[in-house]
Amino acid sequence: MADLVSSLKDLRVLEGLAAKNSVIHRLHPFAKLSMALSIICFSASFGRYSFAQLSLYLFYPFIMMALAELPYSVLLPRLAAALPFCLFAGIANVAMERTPAFYIGSIAITFGTVSLMTIMLKMYICVMAALIMVATTPISDLSAQLRRLHVPGSFVLVFEITYRYIGLLLEQALSMATAYRLRSGDRKALLMRDMPSFLGQMLLSGFDRAERVYAAMQCRGYAIDHIRQSKKKLKTADIAAIGLTLALAACGRFFIFW
């Protein structure tokens, strides 16, 4: 239950960071979206042993975090959530690919280890790029930009509803967990035998509530075809930021060889 409470508190932290007023926050949402997407696409395009070349991309999270005045203490724990998946995917490579790629002194570094390090680095760069974008751009602006990029309305709708609804769902889970605890002799965790009915009830009541929340949004003018279009225009600084990011990313990808 403590996890639910802390999830509820953490949920709005990124939105709070997005309300700051740094040089990055002031950039046009389209610029931030383009910069993040270009870094993600370029870094994802690297081969599995391109650790050294890929490490150049560390410039992006490092510089953006500094300019946006974002605390590592908020973003790194969220990054850690993706860690087990990448570690699991990469650890198999260590076992499978044992051919030495190079030596450090007398220690052989295998291709599998290089591959694992590359996967971890890719994960760090991609997840940080996405987190930095979310932590510097309000969700409503992101949705508007996604629509501007002709992302299907149903996708943007799901994205927005999920974001708005997740806090309410957690709140509901918290009150159900409290009710469970009060009637189960102050048990701290759910018993496995109670899990199906607990989750089933949460899903059913959550579905009803999601419909009511969506109705409330519709009543106040929300319609996917009318998602607010930003009237803000791209400024020279926005274009320069996109250009610089693209240029550095392309240089790192195509022109710098080790």
Partner: peptide, 8 residues
């Protein structure tokens, strides 16, 4: 009101 207030 819990159904209506969904913003941060």
């Amino acid at each position: 009101p819990d159904d209506q207030l969904f913003m941060p």
